[in-house]
């Protein structure tokens, strides 16, 4: 069998491709959000999709995150598979009640009577000089909530495979896209130009359908000295630091924060005996605290 056709893609193109593949494959998939229709999204993630798939499949919405997510819950209850975009994670909070109290709880509170197969996409994280309203990393607010899966890709290849898996998942997924690395892997060095994705691993993206299962981390560098748990933009910052400093770290890109791939983490920490967590979110009550607790809890590690 021939290898599936691949193409060099940056993360935006990979996300666009995932949405395109799913719109073509599943007639229940619907995309909506502020500026996602004719214009194709402020980051161009939905460019061309309305023209290709029609206005009832890809359309603009009022500026109301509560409305976008609430309407998504209703569409999912009908039987559609909505993929709303929240333009910036910093603006997701008006929709928080609909996510936390409704989307996340629907299967549980109705004992499987109603479900919510909805994927909320949203660019998150810092590094674009956006000030405090375009830079936040609110992932731990979502990992705290029972009933939501939280996914954060770090390469174009992973972004497409994870997004397809998220859309196909029968539970609500919050899909945070590290916007700092949409066009290329930022290494943490502001004095170095960001190279385009085409010069980096993870940018050869199959044009068709493929999945990366939710809940599976990736060991992006094998090593013996220390395990580094990270995700999103920080994967590339850690890789650059490890390369520059020359220590033998094992770098784990979590990819899915919840459910967490504890088996991969456990195996690595047992091997190295040391663990370090790197994320760009608020440290206090951040996801790093959960990771720190998880690696210390199992008797097999201690």
């Amino acid at each position: 069998m021939a290898e599936p056709a691949t193409k060099k893609m940056n993360m935006i193109e990979a996300i666009n491709s995932a949405l395109d593949v799913m719109l073509a494959k599943d007639p229940e998939v619907v995309i909506m959000g502020e500026d996602v229709g004719y214009f194709g999204g402020v980051f161009r993630a939905t460019a061309g999709l309305q023209a290709k798939h029609g206005k009832t499949r890809v359309f603009d919405t009022p500026i109301s995150e509560c409305g976008i997510i609430g309407v998504g819950v209703g569409m999912a209850a009908y039987g559609l598979r909505p993929v709303p975009e929240i333009q910036f994670a910093d603006y997701i909070y008006p929709g928080l009640d609909q996510l936390v109290s409704e989307a996340a709880r629907l299967r549980y509170r109705s004992a499987n009577d109603f479900t919510c197969p909805m994927t909320v996409r949203s660019p998150f994280g810092g590094g674009i000089f956006g000030g405090q309203t375009h830079s936040q990393s609110p992932e731990s607010l979502f990992t705290h909530v029972c009933g939501i899966k939280t996914v954060i890709p770090a390469t174009p290849y992973d972004a497409k495979g994870l997004l397809i898996a998220a859309i196909e998942d029968n539970d609500p997924v919050v899909f945070f896209e590290p916007k700092r690395i949409y066009n290329g892997p930022f290494t943490g060095y502001y004095d170095r130009p960001v190279e385009p994705w085409s010069k980096h691993a993870g940018s050869d993206v199959p044009e068709g359908h493929y999945r990366i299962n939710l809940g599976e981390a990736a060991v992006v560098r094998e090593g013996e000295a220390v395990t580094v748990l990270t995700y999103g933009t920080m994967v590339h910052v850690v890789k650059a630091v490890v390369a520059d400093q020359g220590f033998d770290a094992e770098i784990i890109d979590l990819r899915t924060l919840l459910p967490l791939d504890i088996a991969t983490i456990e195996a690595s920490v047992k091997k190295t005996g040391r663990c370090m967590v790197v994320h760009e979110a608020t440290r206090t009550s951040g996801f790093g605290a959960e990771l720190a607790a998880q690696v210390q809890e199992p008797a097999s590690i201690i």
Binding site: G74, M75, L80
Partner: peptide
């Protein structure tokens, strides 16, 4: 919370 949900259901229909 059921208000926007009813709208979403109707839009889907």
């Amino acid at each position: 919370t059921q208000y926007p949900q009813a709208v979403g259901w109707a839009m889907a229909s």
